[in-house]
């Protein structure tokens, strides 16, 4: 910075103080999110021996086993999302449109499980699904079964708990969307002679699609990479994307393969999300398409 007197230098720096104060969050985001992501992508192209660009890591990951694991995770994510929609819709409809008193309290109760730790939620389900747990005890007492059913350590357990943990993610946007619904439309529809079911299918449902869409993706993306639920509830018998990635990075200490597998899973997820996005816009009305 030649040619600047000391006073001008001081002025320059004083002028840049606002900039200096405003950038930490950007630096943080770039340094701890964008750069690591780029590093991971870069790492996946580096050979395991240390140096050199290579596609060998991807070649090793393109096996049927890994494709199967990614497919299983995608399937679990989709099933979770669909079931969450089915389960969340009645509650959100009821809260948003059917009751007036105690709405806030009931909403608080509905959201509260979201704020409890995933660990606590998973552990709670052990008590329900176990051989001596709640479900089996009830079924045995009612003499519906003679031997305890093995609910734990199976795919069913994984799905149930995933739905449980991600339900609040679906409830919140869906409730917000239904809350915003202009009830005069429903009144008008009833006045014009539509039955309750017609009002629902022709007005309420299409108008709630943005909420469904947001909730769907809020559930789909995180549940794909879920780590704790499969690790604890499948009895170690099934591998999901989360467990494989953690195995690569922590257990087997294979960061290159792990990076390649991570990138592949992310591409698969992005493709799935893209497809669903197109599907959603296919099924919505032109007015909503503009809004989207």
């Amino acid at each position: 910075m030649t040619g600047l007197s000391k006073r001008n230098l001081k002025q320059l720096f004083r002028e840049q103080i606002p900039f200096f104060l405003s950038i930490p969050s950007l630096i943080w985001q770039i340094l701890f999110f964008y750069i690591p992501t780029i590093l991971i992508i870069g790492l996946s192209f580096v050979a395991m021996t240390g140096y050199g660009f290579t596609l060998y890591n991807y070649w090793l990951c393109c096996t049927v086993t890994y494709a199967f694991i990614i497919a299983r995770s995608l399937l679990a994510a989709f099933i979770t999302s669909f079931c969450c929609v089915l389960i969340a819709y009645p509650v959100c409809y009821y809260l948003a449109l059917s009751i007036e008193r105690a709405k806030n309290f009931l909403l608080f109760l509905l959201i509260l499980p979201f704020w409890t730790s995933v660990m606590v939620q998973i552990y709670a389900w052990f008590f329900v699904l176990e051989r001596h747990g709640l479900i089996n005890t009830i079924l045995l007492r009612l003499h519906l079964i003679t031997q305890p059913v093995a609910l734990l350590n199976s795919s069913i357990a994984v799905y149930i708990v995933m739905i449980y943990c991600y339900l609040p993610f679906m409830i919140m946007p869906l409730y917000a969307q239904l809350e915003k619904l202009d009830t005069r439309l429903l009144d008008a529809s009833a006045d014009l002679g539509a039955t309750a079911w017609q009002t629902f299918t022709r007005i309420t449902l299409p108008l709630s699609v943005p909420g469904i869409r947001t909730g769907f993706f809020l559930v789909l993306v995180p549940s794909f990479g879920e780590l704790a639920i499969p690790a604890l509830l499948s009895g170690g018998k099934q591998l999901f994307v989360g467990s494989v990635i953690s195995q690569f990075f922590i257990s087997a200490r294979e960061p290159h393969l792990g990076a390649a597998f991570t990138v592949m899973s992310c591409i698969a997820l992005a493709a799935a999300v893209g497809l669903m996005y197109m599907a959603f816009s296919w099924f919505s009305t032109p007015a909503e398409r503009n809004a989207l």
Binding site: F32, P36, T37, I40, V221, P222, L227, F249, T262, C266
Partner: peptide
């Protein structure tokens, strides 16, 4: 992004 990608990157 899924949290596991964040964690692994970090």
């Amino acid at each position: 992004t899924p949290e596991i990608v964040l964690a692994v990157g970090l």
